[in-house]
């Protein structure tokens, strides 16, 4: 395998030359069930719990088993930086709308341009949290994973723009309150040992008119003292690319597959930030080839140093069936190695 011409090399203390392999990561949720025999244990447990046939402890064990399974699969696929698969997350807002004060889970709404639905956060009072909403999940994931584990929270703009608000007077007030609560969650995660936290905020690219409001929110999130990876998806980041580059975050994730975008030709704006390149289409079953992904990575490598380029799916893997996810992750890892000049 001939390494990409744009790829840098590094010499170790013995003088051997190593090509840098691009890191891989995932975003959002991993499929909770599969079509395989025995692959629907969690689904079945939830049905049985609804019918009162099992208690909370048995359901909790089913969640734990599914989380363990997701982590093992992500590790086995060779993903460098994994998450816990969000197995306990009913949707992007559910953990927070369930645990926080002042908000509950409201009516169903479509998740952007997907045939997937979420319960809108229904804000009826001042938002409060002890900041420990995700600590147990993160700690559990870290105890199981072989490598690096990142945590995740929902983005303040996405939460605030998709909520039904019967308490705060304006979007600005709502974003501020959500941000304050998320800062506490970040502090809780930091104390639990998190060294990187995804902030899933597709609203930033869906509603670019609110970019300054988002900037203010991220400036406050940054003060929690844990490196942040701002993950955008579904929509092109074209209109806010320079803005995102100036946000106080360590990483920015962009989706280069869902719609036409010029971002791939403008990645140099990100300077010393890590670019999480959403190159693997997580919303279509068509299986990419390794060369297809490698070509995208090499295009990015003309503008971004390899240690600052991570390859990733465009968004949550839960938009795909489990068997397709398995195949796609294999291609992703293969492509990252190929782009780094490592023989497949």
């Amino acid at each position: 395998m001939v390494p990409s011409p744009a790829l840098e090399t590094r010499e170790d203390e013995r003088g051997s030359v190593h090509h840098l392999t691009l890191k891989t990561t995932v975003i959002g949720a991993f499929p909770k069930i599969s079509d395989d025999p025995g692959g629907q244990h969690l689904r079945s447990a939830l049905h049985r719990h609804d019918r009162g046939e099992i208690d909370d402890a048995v359901l909790d064990a089913a969640y734990a088993a599914a989380t363990k399974g997701a982590i093992e699969e992500l590790d086995a696929a060779g993903i460098d930086v994994i998450n816990d698969g969000h197995i306990r997350w009913d949707d992007l807002f559910a953990p927070f709308a369930t645990a926080w004060g002042g908000v509950s889970r409201g009516p169903l709404e479509r998740c952007y341009d997907n045939n997937t639905y979420f319960r809108q956060p229904l804000i009826e009072g001042a938002l409060t949290t002890d900041g420990k909403t995700l600590v147990a999940d993160f700690t559990y994931a870290r105890s199981l994973a072989k490598g690096e584990v990142k945590a995740a929270i929902c983005g303040p703009l996405t939460f605030a723009t998709l909520a039904i608000d019967k308490h705060y007077r304006s979007l600005e007030d709502r974003v501020g309150a959500v941000t304050d609560a998320l800062v506490k969650e970040l502090e809780g995660l930091r104390e639990a040992g998190a060294t990187l936290v995804d902030v899933e905020d597709p609203a930033i690219v869906a509603l670019p008119q609110h970019i300054e409001l988002a900037r203010e929110a991220y400036t406050r999130l940054h003060r929690a003292g844990v490196p942040l990876a701002l993950q955008t998806y579904f929509f092109p980041a074209d209109r806010v690319l320079e803005d995102l580059a100036s946000f106080p975050v360590a990483q920015v994730g962009i989706d280069i597959r869902s719609r036409d975008t010029t971002a791939l030709r403008r990645l140099d704006v990100f300077g010393d930030k890590v670019v999480v390149l959403g190159a693997l289409d997580a919303r279509n079953t068509r299986l990419e080839t390794r060369d297809e992904l490698t070509a995208l990575a090499e295009q990015a490598l003309k503008l971004v140093k390899p240690e600052r380029l991570w390859l990733a799916p465009t968004t949550s893997l839960e938009f795909l069936p489990h068997d397709v996810v398995t195949k796609k992750l294999a291609v992703l890892v293969d492509a990252a190695r190929a782009a780094g000049g490592v023989p497949a």
Binding site: L46, D90, Y117, P321
Partner: peptide
Amino acid sequence: EGGLVRAYGNRYYHKPI
């Protein structure tokens, strides 16, 4: 026929291809 994907909550469907 595609594999199972989640619509919401604990509801899944075979998303076709």
